[in-house]
Amino acid sequence: MVMALDTHGEVSDDALLLAYAAGDRAAARELTLRCAPVALRVAQRMLRDPAEAEDVAQEAMLRLWRIAPEWRPGEAKISTWLYRVTSNLCTDRLRRAGRGMPLEAIDEPADDRPAAVAGMIEADRAEALRQALADLPDRQRQAVVLRHLEGLANPEIAAIMDVGVEAVESLTARGKRALVRALAGRREELGYEDD
């Protein structure tokens, strides 16, 4: 079977999915290495609980395997489809859980030795951002994660979220303003005054 190549000369995601649907198990391995980390990353950024993020990413990938025989190449990008499914699954989980934070997701008390301080500040920064992201409304969080953490362009985010580009711009801007407000009082605490 001749597989279509993408612009970088690699076999495209579409071609791999079609190959998997035709019974090529090696294609599944390649797709897993390409797509599963993306799904997991998005889920981790939206959910905070690592175990729940893995569950969601696995579920999103399972849906990809199931849809493989019906996949129509060229109609949508697999990455777009995967972002959409993963972020929707995350939103469902957050709504069901009422945004509660599981105990196991809370970090252990930090080590106060000098060598650990830099690492602690780094971890605190990340944790502060995760906390502030978790407090955003669902759609704003989804837009901010896709734009600023996944680095996607607004048209692709619009396709993922099934809204117009202007709506994405508005959601992202409002989300950023809310994050700035939430983090404004913590700049010194998080070590940004020294940068």
């Binding site: 998997y20 198990r25 599944a28 391995r29 797709l31 897993t32 290495l33 599963a36 980390p37 997991l40 990353r41 981790q44 950024r45 893995e54 990413a57 696995q58 990938m61 399972l62 395997w65 780094e122 920064r125 990340a126 951002l129 995760r130 953490l149 680095g151």
Partner: peptide
């Protein structure tokens, strides 16, 4: 910072995903 601190996916997670595909 958060983008740079991206952890690698755990091997057992990837194994579960691949097992689902199989």
């Amino acid at each position: 910072d958060l983008r740079a601190a991206e952890p690698l996916p755990p091997a057992d997670f990837l194994a579960r995903v691949l097992a689902d595909a199989e």
